Amino acid sequence: MNSEFHKSSYSGASSECVEVSEGTVTLIRDTKSPRAAMLSFPTREWIALLSDIDAL
């Protein structure tokens, strides 16, 4: 089961960002359209992406 959606602490008070729900798969949605289509990634791919970004 996935966790509730949350946005990055870097977003501050801005309502224009993406939210992430982590669990068996990682879901990503737009905060302006939370009921619209979401992106879905296998958790290991999401972790690999975050690791690659952190390495930059």
Rank of each mutant, 00 (worst) to 15 (best):
M1N: 07
M1G: 13
N2P: 05
S3E: 10
E4V: 09
K7W: 00
K7D: 00
K7F: 01
S9A: 13
Y10D: 01
Y10N: 00
S11V: 03
S14R: 07
S14Y: 08
S15H: 13
S15W: 08
E16Y: 06
E16T: 11
C17V: 04
C17Y: 11
C17L: 11
V18R: 03
E19D: 14
S21G: 09
E22W: 06
E22H: 03
G23Y: 06
G23K: 02
T24C: 11
V25Y: 11
I28D: 13
R29H: 05
D30S: 07
T31S: 13
K32Y: 03
K32P: 04
S33Q: 13
S33F: 10
P34I: 02
R35D: 07
R35F: 11
A36V: 06
A37S: 09
A37F: 05
A37P: 00
M38A: 08
M38E: 11
M38S: 14
L39I: 12
S40Q: 10
F41K: 04
F41Q: 10
P42G: 09
P42W: 04
P42R: 06
T43R: 15
T43P: 08
T43V: 14
E45T: 13
W46Y: 09
I47E: 01
I47R: 06
A48E: 03
A48R: 03
A48C: 06
L50C: 11
D52C: 15
D52P: 00
D52I: 08
D54N: 12
D54I: 08
A55G: 09
A55D: 12
L56N: 05
L56Q: 01
L56S: 14
